[in-house]
Design a binder for these strands. Structure first.
Length: 343
DNA sequence: TAAATCCAGAATA
DNA sequence: TATTCTGGATTTA
């Protein structure tokens, strides 16, 4: 029997590393034993925090604590813990007892340039979700990252690096917000920055080329777009009224713009669309451009069909039933309107 | 800048 | 329906 087990001592976390320049905040739970002994954030030599922080910026690691802190400041990264004090045996989050929370909302109030919060592990995330975020009176977005603790060995280093790279993407303003729409036919997703929709993902086409972005929970733009898509899928909306971004070559933009002129309930062939975009011989190229459509539904690539009137393909899948479903949806709505007009 | 690749097309039998 | 013939856009070297 270990006699020290019966007398846990109260431990206290450190002051935040933060200034008015800080743009992101990284939250842990409580410094581990080694960190407490040295009075330095993430002092355990096998904790991956410092290696990851330097690696995501492609910078060589520094051992000097003062330089490490300086590195955080110069990259506008703030650091703190969700707990102010607690009792704990060893260094594991699981053993945290009688915890007292830090005033995360207060910190965010005092440093208004911080809009994005990353949580180092699940315990910090849970605490931030329940006692931090709900009390912040301005838009702040949080993301959970895999813990850098040596105890979290089941997740490979490469995965951790991939996830922690989101901090750099955020600092470089490569930020998106996602809203998911669950339907009987599958999950639709909207991804937006703070001004416009960047991507619409249809069921079965999750192959996101978005690993260069940090994807946060929904914002106003993604919510509004998702709302309109829901209405469209319910047959209650015929056109979209949201800002979105078209990407591609100048010819591709011409094609998308010509396609936007094709009204609800109508279809067009690849050849005809090519001609309207200024090059009537570019039918196959139009096919390639359709496949790359960043915002399907908004740019209605489902209205493009073969010259024989058949559903050739959609989202890279030949004869995709989702295209048939969308076309039917539009035809039904038109038929309904005709019926009403004639009675 | 030249060649290779792509394509959810179009035309034909 | 299956096969062949396309050729512009895009990617790669």
């Amino acid at each position: 029997m270990n006699k020290t087990e019966s007398m846990p001592v109260v431990i206290k976390s450190f002051k935040p590393v933060v200034d008015q320049n800080s743009r992101v905040l990284i939250l842990g739970t409580m410094p581990g034993e080694e960190s407490l002994r040295q009075q330095q954030y993430y002092a355990h030599p096998r904790n991956l925090f410092w290696p990851l922080i330097y690696t995501i910026f492609n910078k060589p690691q520094e051992q000097d604590y003062g330089k490490r802190i300086q590195f955080l400041y110069s990259n506008r990264i703030a650091l703190w813990d969700v707990f102010k004090s607690c009792e704990r045996e060893g260094s594991l989050d699981n053993n945290i007892r009688k915890e007292e929370s830090n005033d995360i909302a207060g910190l965010l109030e005092a440093f208004p340039n911080i809009r994005y919060v990353f949580c180092n592990g699940g315990a910090a995330w849970k605490q931030f979700q329940t006692n931090g975020l709900p009390f912040v009176k301005r838009p702040v977005f949080g993301l959970r990252l895999p813990s850098t603790s040596p105890a979290n060995a089941s997740i490979p280093y490469e995965t951790k690096l991939e996830q922690w790279s989101k901090i750099r993407f955020t600092l470089e303003n490569r930020i998106l917000h996602e809203t998911s729409i669950q339907t009987e036919t599958g999950t639709y997703k909207v991804l937006a920055n703070d001004k416009e929709v960047i991507r619409v993902c249809l069921p079965g086409s999750d192959k996101q080329v978005l690993n260069q972005f940090a994807v946060f929970p929904e914002n106003g733009v993604s919510i509004e777009a998702a709302e309109q898509i829901k209405e469209y899928l319910a047959g209650k909306r015929k056109c979209f009224n949201i800002p979105y971004r078209l990407e591609g070559s100048s010819f591709a933009i011409n094609v998308y713009q010509a396609l936007l002129e094709v009204p609800f309930g109508c279809t067009i062939s690849y050849g005809e669309l090519a001609e309207r975009a200024g090059n009537k011989k570019a039918a196959q190229a139009v096919g390639q451009i359709m496949r790359k459509n960043p915002v399907p539904l908004i740019v209605p690539c489902h209205r493009v069909i073969g010259s024989t009137g058949k559903n050739i393909g959609f989202m890279g899948i030949r004869g995709n039933p989702i295209q048939n479903m969308l076309l039917k949806l539009e035809q039904n709505r038109i038929a309904e309107e005709d019926f009403r007009q004639n009675t």
